[in-house]
Design a protein around this nucleic acid. Sequence first.
RNA 1: GGCGAGGUAGCUCAGCUGGUCUAGAGCGCUGGAUUCAUAACCCGGAGGUCGAGGGUUCGAGUCCCUCCCUCGCCA
Length: 531
Amino acid sequence: MPTFYVTTPIYYVNDRPHIGHCYTTLLADVIARFHRLKGDDVLMLTGTDEHAEKVITRATEAGVTPQEWADRNAQAFREAFEFMGFSQDDFVRTSEDRHKTRASGYIQKLVDSGDIYLGDYEGWYDPGQEEYVTESVAKAHDYTSPVSGKPLEKRNEKNYFFRLSAFEERLRTYIEDHPRFVLPEARRNEVLGRLRQGLQDVPVSRAVRDADGADWGIRMPNDPDHRVYVWIEALCNYLTVVDTDDRRKYWPASIHLLAKDILWFHAVVWPAMLMALDEPLPGCVYAHAYFVAEGRKMSKSLGNFIEIDQLRAYGDRFSVDAVRWYLATQGPLGSTDADFAHSNFVEVYNAELANGLGNCASRVVNMIHKYFDGELPEARDATVHAGVDWPSLTGGHVEQAEVCFSRADLHGAGHQGLAIVTAIDGYINTTEPFRLAKRIEGPDDPGRGDLALILFNCAEALRIAAMLLLPFMPSKAAAVLEMLGASAPGDGGLNEHAKWRGPQGLKPGTPVAKGPGLFMRAEADEPAPTA
RNA sequence: GGCGAGGUAGCUCAGCUGGUCUAGAGCGCUGGAUUCAUAACCCGGAGGUCGAGGGUUCGAGUCCCUCCCUCGCCA
């Protein structure tokens, strides 16, 4: 069984879960669910990044230990992800021993190999924030603090450095030879562009100044006076979690999903570390762009972050699956940002979910009830009917969905399922079963066979559409399958699940349930739900 | 400043190596038809001098030059 390992970044535990965290994790979830449907042995990983110094600060302010603070906030992420219906196989926290001990081991290995060494760091220090700012940030603010506006100080300190520069050539060659290693392409260009300008070694540790929170974070294994920078140990999570006997099979990760702000670490620093550790590189580093809110960039100063509570409000009003569908298919998978706009949400909801999938399911089920007493009719085996070759039409969309997924094209993949729905609608309109039903005079009327065939075909096609939509809307697609009396996908893989009249195909005689509408149409001008 | 991406219908975008592009799709808008269905589905229509100007060519959204604008990245 092929393995498939998909990761999200681990999220800064001081954050409150918002649309950004949910979006990246949703992508991972949809992809993971698709691969499980395919029959792959999947590991989906998400988690929290907990060792930042500000965690100590916030914990102290709250009067609790860093661990207690982190526990509390990690729980908020878990709850948000549960609400979103995410199916992560593991949730890693960097404060866990399994992470700390192995990450520490990797650092030691790099020290031993000489890829990490003690050197001098010089940079712009912001005394108010107690942190260094990058040259470009310093320059952008005219060498004053971006927070307080007070002048920055040039400071020196002893740090351990990772010998990133040594990997410049290998990295460039690797990325050039593997066009799908960094995606989307615009991001790959950025990385290659920066690589051409040369690489400098990067600091990976900082001297511990005082006893506060002394047991928080990971110490340099060879020098306990230094604490490993969070970002570098955080990257290690992808490996620490699978560096066990039973999980080694998952490495290298198939795809690391992340937002564009942390591309550099994932596309350059992390691969270089893996090279230094003699580990194979992940298949793909995919950096998506951001969601903006109603056309405006989300920011703390505007206070317009779409937080989990607002997504909950949308979920309560339109269903969680509608939120998942909107985010996954309308999201910023490319290099440019996408807009979470209420009017757009309602448009997509109505057009694709209510008028599309929901309405189609409703008309098919309704006719089976009306004309066959709610029992799926026996149909002759004529799969090409009224100019529609159902096995190849549905098979084609299944195949296309697989292609789309292999490119992380969730918009395209999702629309394969909808395309089948559109085909069903068109088929109903051309064959007009509702008219046929009126012409039928008795149980022996030969038209009855056609009517049965039409409705069976509709139901079977709908089943396959639902199968393809399952990764996007696990509960709504499952509801469609249940309505049709189809079995939930078991073992066997997508080719079996989605095969026309295959092993999991609908069985004549099965009762078809007339449930409540899947997605009821919304008013275009109804106000946005609020948290 | 350096590197990169892009400006095509109201919106989101397809249009690869120049000629089925007298410019496409989806959504939105609008007219019609229909009734199995969630005022839905189906059919039709309006809407663009393809950022501006110049050039190459028998022919350019597609190639070249100049300019304008937007966006991304710079550890």
